[in-house]
Computed example of a mutant assay.
Amino acid sequence: MKTKLICLLVCLGAVNALTRKQEAAEQSRRKTASPSQKKEPVQEDEYEDEELADECPEPNGYFPDAEQCDKYYDCRDGKGTEKLCPDGLVFNDFSPQHEKCDLPFGIDCSKRLKLQKPQPSQHCPRMHGYFAHEDAKICDTFYYCVEGKFNMITCPDGLVFSEKTGICNWPDEAQKKGCGSRELFNFTCPKVDDSVAATHPRYADAEDCQYFYVCVNGEIPRRSGCKLGQAFDERTGKCDWARKIPECKDWYKGQLTDQELDALENPPPKPKPTGGPSRRKSSRPT
């Protein structure tokens, strides 16, 4: 009886041992069969290269950034190098073969509105560009900035600085707030019928004999002027020598002498060019 009990215990132990071995083998098999969840770390520079490569629609060339107008990519063999234009300039994407940064006027940045952080200095909101005067009431003065250094420029009489185009323009075209024709000139075009309006009628400037107003389509006033020594004649609607117009005959007194006015009205004839014989051939070749 004792011998049978010992044999039974040994056999049960052997069965349990076999079962544990089978379980261990099964777990090992499952680990080998299932894919590993551990991934190799991606190198940061490799990730950046992949990102910049996406900015290269062609293997070689210069291409704009999708969001920032003054950023672009120099692509070589499909690999892109990120670049920035000087502050105030934007990338001109007219051709992938040309690396060109320009003033923003005339370049479409409507879909690339972002810009780099400004680097302002005196009178220059950015290092490069044309910028309006700080005083909004000063309409005809602006600043031209290069490398953060400014030059102040004044528009010709009757024109104002246009922030949209970067040049001096007629007030109605510049559309700068507070710098319209009525605010600047204190003049309103008289109402006329359509036939007169079509001729763009002219009116004298009541305060300055040299200047006059052209009413475009009879409605929009533009201030224009005669050349030095002349005045606007209301009777003819044209410029003539001031001394010939009774109400303006003394307009230049104290500014120009009679001799200077005479020289303007009667300039000396230009001398005819002198030189050697003509180089033209006297006859056509036969």
Rank of each mutant, 00 (worst) to 15 (best):
C139M: 02
D70H: 10
C155R: 10
K71V: 12
K79Y: 06
P201E: 02
G148H: 09
A66C: 06
E183N: 10
D140V: 01
T141C: 00
G80A: 15
P190L: 07
T188C: 00
V160H: 04
Y72M: 04
Q175P: 05
T141E: 08
M127K: 14
N92Q: 08
C189R: 06
E147H: 08
F161Y: 14
E207F: 03
E173R: 14
H98F: 14
C168M: 07
C189F: 08
P120K: 12
Y73Q: 11
H98R: 14
K71N: 04
G148I: 06
F150T: 03
N151C: 04
G158A: 06
D74L: 09
K191M: 02
A174C: 11
L184N: 06
P171N: 07
E163K: 12
K137A: 14
V146T: 13
K117G: 10
D194P: 00
D87F: 07
D87V: 10
G88N: 11
E183F: 01
C139Q: 06
G129A: 05
T188P: 00
F63S: 03
K100Q: 15
S181F: 01
G129W: 04
I153C: 01
Y143K: 03
K100N: 14
C145N: 08
F91I: 12
P118V: 06
A174R: 11
G148M: 07
S195G: 00
D108G: 06
F150K: 00
S95K: 02
P86D: 12
D172C: 05
T199S: 13
L89I: 12
D205V: 05
K117E: 15
I153Y: 03
K164V: 02
C179G: 05
A174V: 09
N169E: 15
N151K: 14
F161T: 00
A66W: 08
L103N: 10
L159D: 04
D157G: 07
H98M: 14
S95W: 01
D70W: 13
T188V: 13
P118W: 06
K191W: 02
F185Q: 09
Y143Q: 01
N92G: 09
W170I: 02
S162A: 05
S110D: 03
D87H: 10
F94H: 13
Y144E: 09
E134A: 13
C168I: 07
F131P: 01
P125C: 03
K100C: 11
S181T: 05
N169L: 12
S162M: 04
D70K: 11
I107L: 13
P190T: 08
D74Q: 08
H123T: 01
K137E: 15
D193C: 10
Q175M: 15
D157A: 11
H200P: 00
P190K: 07
C189E: 03
A206I: 13
R182V: 11
K83F: 03
L113M: 08
D93S: 14
I167G: 04
K117H: 13
S110F: 01
F105G: 01
C189W: 03
P86C: 03
E99M: 11
Q122V: 10
P156W: 00
E183T: 07
F142D: 03
N92E: 10
H200F: 09
K191Y: 01
G129P: 02
